[in-house]
Computed example of a mutant assay.
Amino acid sequence: RYPDDWIGSLTAIENKPDLSTPGDLAAQLRYDVALGLFDEVVLATGSYVTRAHLNRIPETVGVWRFDPESGDREVVREPTRLDPGASGVEIRDERALRTDVALVDPAEKARKRRRIAERAYGKGWRPDPPRCVYARATDDGRPHCDRFDQVVDPGRDCGTTCAAFEPADPPALDRDRLRDARTAWVADPDGAEPRRQASLSRFR
């Protein structure tokens, strides 16, 4: 079991490359904001973002314009930080004159946040290892301190506040290998045509 306080922050990124076909995007963003499960909610798109687009989504949602070819990211609007420690509102159903909701208490939100973080960790997502001479990455990608012989939280345990800290280049960490080994997703599937990949919600 992971410690209760091992999660720093969680950001929900709704990926919508083409805003000309938004589908249920606005409803999904309203759901994310009302529930307040994540610290921040961001919409990522490849489209040019107009004022009309911004007016149709909650103002607390950040907006990034991302070019997958170059990797460039333009921050159109910064997200407003939410409060995962407070009670949330789960939108169950939206109709013209009625919206069905349910209250979600902070304890249930905390349990869900842990499950999300554990799932991401299980699929190979890792924090950046410390830029310290004593730092290394374990075989499964965890940041380890050889000086104190333990796995560490880089954001909390490392840096100039540590008496043993000695600046150095960060150790090598092959995130792609970890994710390939722990998720059903295939980054470059065989064949020229794109194809659907099923069972992506499962992980080892």
Rank of each mutant, 00 (worst) to 15 (best):
P3G: 03
D5G: 04
D5V: 02
W6C: 00
I7V: 05
G8I: 03
A12R: 01
I13A: 04
I13T: 03
I13K: 01
E14A: 07
P17I: 12
D18Y: 07
S20Q: 15
T21R: 09
P22V: 02
P22S: 06
P22I: 04
G23R: 01
G23T: 00
G23A: 00
L25A: 02
A26L: 02
A27W: 01
A27M: 06
Q28W: 07
D32T: 07
V33N: 02
V33H: 00
V33W: 02
A34E: 09
A34Q: 11
L35K: 03
G36Q: 03
G36L: 03
L37Q: 03
D39S: 06
D39P: 12
E40Q: 06
E40T: 03
V42D: 07
A44M: 13
A44C: 11
T45Q: 08
G46N: 13
S47D: 11
S47W: 12
H53C: 13
L54D: 08
N55Y: 12
I57C: 05
I57P: 03
P58S: 06
T60F: 10
V61M: 08
G62H: 14
W64G: 09
R65A: 15
R65Y: 15
F66K: 07
G71S: 14
D72N: 15
R73N: 10
R73V: 15
V76D: 13
E78N: 13
P79T: 08
T80K: 13
R81A: 05
L82I: 11
D83S: 14
A86T: 04
S87R: 05
G88S: 05
E90G: 06
D93S: 12
E94S: 06
R95E: 15
R98W: 12
V101M: 08
V101E: 04
A102N: 08
A102V: 11
L103R: 09
L103N: 08
V104N: 04
A107E: 14
A107C: 04
K109V: 09
K109G: 07
A110H: 11
A110L: 11
R111A: 15
R115N: 07
E118T: 04
E118G: 02
Y121G: 01
Y121L: 01
G122E: 05
G122Y: 01
K123V: 00
G124L: 00
R126L: 10
P127V: 10
P127W: 09
P129T: 08
P130T: 08
P130G: 07
T138A: 11
D140T: 13
R142W: 13
R142Q: 13
C145Y: 02
D146R: 11
D146C: 07
D146L: 13
R147V: 06
R147L: 10
F148Y: 08
Q150P: 00
V152F: 06
D153S: 01
G155R: 04
D157T: 03
D157G: 02
T160W: 00
A163M: 05
A163K: 02
E166F: 10
P167Y: 13
A168N: 12
A168R: 09
D169P: 10
P171A: 14
A172G: 14
A172S: 14
R175F: 03
D176W: 13
R177Q: 15
L178K: 09
L178N: 09
R179N: 00
R179L: 01
D180V: 09
T183F: 00
W185K: 09
D188I: 14
P189F: 14
G191I: 12
E193F: 11
E193T: 09
P194I: 10
R195N: 05
A198F: 14
L200V: 02
S201E: 11
F203K: 00
